[in-house]
């Protein structure tokens, strides 16, 4: 088990955004968490990354409890995050944005090789290498955020609402990349999405969350056939 979340809650004041969620992710798995806006998906992921504090419960990563660690220490353990709305560094260049992901890894990773791999994946980033990240389109910023995470050669990738605000053709492109990374490179990915169709399509297993609790879980293929999921999330 690479990641095991046990009975985790996240509270903002009196509001309980995540209410006792447990989930698992095996090494090499692509797991998606789907749910409506405000269901607590992003809070869950932010808490796994250590950006917001959890209340109760535990987060086990590679067998060790990481729930007390600050986010940069979790990053050092190989967890990387593609935040909602990309959160690129607007006044740094594309290249510098990617470089921040490799912070403290100089010497440990093959940086030129990694950059070649990323530019192959997203050629537009090589074209815009020296442009400020603020000049990129929303889709390009998502690609940059993914690259910033991938350059470190992570063991677990957390992806938060990567499809938000992207045009459909770009959504497909980004999901294809995530699928390829999982299938061909064996990257473990925890994906949080409103776009249920796309994420069920590429993940092996999924969780459905509603108002902070898990209401359904199972193989993504089975969930796609589930009448409740079809009606509530796929609009069928």
């Amino acid at each position: 088990m690479l990641l095991e979340v046990r009975d985790l809650s996240v509270c903002y004041g009196d509001i309980r955004a995540v209410d006792g969620i447990s989930l698992q992710l095996d090494e090499g798995e692509l797991v998606s968490v789907i749910g409506a806006n405000g269901a607590g998906k992003s809070s869950l992921l932010n808490c796994v990354m250590g950006v917001v504090p959890g209340r109760g419960g535990s987060i086990l990563y590679a067998g060790a409890d990481i729930s007390g660690l600050p986010s940069h220490r979790r990053a050092a353990l190989g967890i990387r995050f593609v935040p909602e709305r990309a959160r690129v560094f607007p006044r740094l260049t594309v290249y510098e944005n990617i470089l921040t992901g490799a912070y403290r890894l100089k010497g440990k990773i093959d940086l030129p090789g990694k950059l070649r791999m990323l530019y192959e994946l997203f050629p537009v980033l090589e074209e815009r290498r020296d442009q400020l990240a603020s000049t990129l389109s929303g889709g390009e910023q998502q690609m940059l955020a993914i690259s910033r995470a991938l350059v470190s050669d992570p063991r677990l990738l957390l992806v938060d609402e990567v499809s938000m605000g992207l045009m459909p053709v770009l959504v497909d492109r980004v999901f294809d990349v995530l699928k390829m990374l999982n299938r061909e490179r064996g990257l473990s990915i925890l994906l949080v999405e409103q776009n249920a169709r796309a994420s069920l399509g590429i993940s092996q297993r999924s969780y459905v969350i509603e108002t902070g609790r898990i209401t359904l879980e199972g193989a993504s293929g089975d969930l796609m056939e589930d009448p409740k999921v079809r009606e509530a999330y796929l609009g069928l």
Partner: peptide, 24 residues
């Protein structure tokens, strides 16, 4: 320097920087 880049990243987006491994 790397330290400079880390500071710029913190200035721009603190949570994104810390989740990229930069210690605030």
């Amino acid at each position: 320097s790397w330290a400079g880049l880390a500071c710029f990243a913190l200035r721009e987006e603190e949570t994104a920087a810390s989740s990229a491994g930069v210690s605030p």
